[in-house]
Nucleic acid binder design. Structure first.
Lengths: 263, 263
DNA sequence: GTACATTACTTTAGGGTGTAAGGAGTCGGC
DNA sequence: GCCGACTCCTTACACCCTAAAGTAATGTAC
């Protein structure tokens, strides 16, 4: 279900995101509203956090609030808009200040916060960041990322690309960690079991693996499978995050040196 | 619908991915199979390419092949497995050789090919890369990425992180481009119209925008909105891709210098 | 104090989805 | 010629989003 908001809904959508201009306490005939947009969004986020995006339906949200699914349509135009609201409200959780001795430490700390945010709300990764929601939360994240990385002294027109790359690296690497957790809690099967079963199958069904993919095989022999308390895939994801980030920041440093002239 | 393959299906799933050990021409009673796994996967890919992942249903695939939805279940255990097959078969499209004067040129060319692949099959981005499918296509991509970047001379245990970061940057940036295309073809509304409508709404509903998000606002004033033939968001995405990649590769170069000792 | 407009919420219904169960029809081997 | 295996279909169920219409509650106006 990929829906692109049409012209007509755009206004309503934006009003919900940015809140009513005045919080008028609604006077007039009719029963008092028993729900609110915020309550609905909060309930939806709770469901998605606890049971994943697959369990999020208008019915499940309504049920959690003691209503039917259709009751929600009084407050929210449809599920698409509800998800947009969930996304934007959640992004607003990101702290905005990252005091640190230098830009690099601040960037690391910010990236870590972004990572944590996504692990807390793994369903964020299933909401596409490409269709811009243009809500306050999204602006807040952009503002924070931009202002922290503006400390590099690079022109803003270049900082924006750094921001984009950092965002992509965080999202990409945290995805593995998030799904690893979800899979573990949902299937109950330990990751080690899963992995050993799979590699047994691989060895049986694709005996020429090392010949066809020598470099992958070499990597498998070399470094992998050191025991650790942390779940394997999750550790893998975290390491990938840290290493990718360091590489990127090294690239930024190189750009700074190049920009300030070859001394 | 996020389903994690259980223990029982794992074998069947892997057999489909890696193909039958022998391509026995099936002797025995019963009608000749009118379909095949490959035909089903191909039809599914065509639908996803043309109409997006939302249009992909067992019914639609069956219809394209002149069958009902249930007929597919003779060949494929379920939709989850079908999507896994689509994903893996599509990844196998990636060319495997990238002759170039140096590793950097090869990496750029490879990343470009990966970008093109995703743009040709935008639904790839809706298939999570976190749950490893462990099919030949996935191994092929890993092998190609690893072997191209092994040219840097860095130890394989570090190259793997470069691979991961590069993959994330490509996927993250191509997502915007892909959705921009899809939105344009689906809604018929030009991107400019969409954008101007939205910014009008923004100005009306959030008049304090520049005060609340000064850095974003400064960026908006500075560089944006240069006219171009290419659609705005798509160009944006491509630039973000190229810039992010350059940053990353600069980081890799720095790592090489550091590893080879400070001369 | 009563009629009415307005609103919250429910029920009903329609068109989608994935897939379990069981019934045709078709073919190879005996 | 028939049996058993196999493909494919019909039916059915449980879920999904949401349009439309009905019901109950509330405040305002006369």
């Amino acid at each position: 279900m990929v829906v692109f908001a049409g012209q007509g809904d755009a206004r309503r959508s934006m009003e919900l995101l940015w809140g009513p201009p005045v919080v008028a306490p609604r006077t007039g005939p009719g029963p008092k509203p028993g729900l609110s947009v915020e309550a609905i969004v909060a309930a939806a986020i709770e469901i998605a956090d606890a049971e994943g995006m697959a369990a999020l339906s208008m019915r499940s949200v309504g049920e959690r609030l003691g209503r039917t699914a259709m009751a929600l349509y009084t407050y929210v135009p449809g599920k698409t808009e509800l998800v947009d609201l969930m996304y934007d409200r959640t992004l607003a959780e990101l702290p905005s200040s990252y005091p640190a001795p230098d830009w690099r430490a601040a960037a690391l700390s910010l990236a870590g916060a972004l990572w944590d945010l996504h692990l807390r709300h793994p369903w964020l990764l299933q909401v596409s960041p490409a269709r811009p929601v243009l809500g306050p939360g999204e602006f807040h994240v952009q503002e924070t990322l931009l202002s922290v990385l503006a400390e590099t002294g690079l022109p803003l027109s270049r900082v924006r690309w750094v921001v984009a790359a950092l965002f992509n690296i965080v999202r990409g690497s945290v995805q593995a960690a998030a799904e690893s957790r979800q899979a573990a809690t949902e299937t109950g099967q330990s990751e080690e079991d899963w992995w050993s079963a799979r590699s047994a199958l691989l060895g049986e069904l694709a005996p020429d693996l090392t010949a066809r993919f020598p470099t992958v095989a070499r990597l498998g022999e070399e470094g992998a499978f050191e025991p650790s308390d942390e779940p394997y895939l999750e550790r893998e994801a975290r390491l990938s995050f840290e290493a990718g980030l360091e590489l990127l920041l090294d690239g930024v440093e190189a750009a700074i040196v190049k920009a300030s002239g070859p001394r």
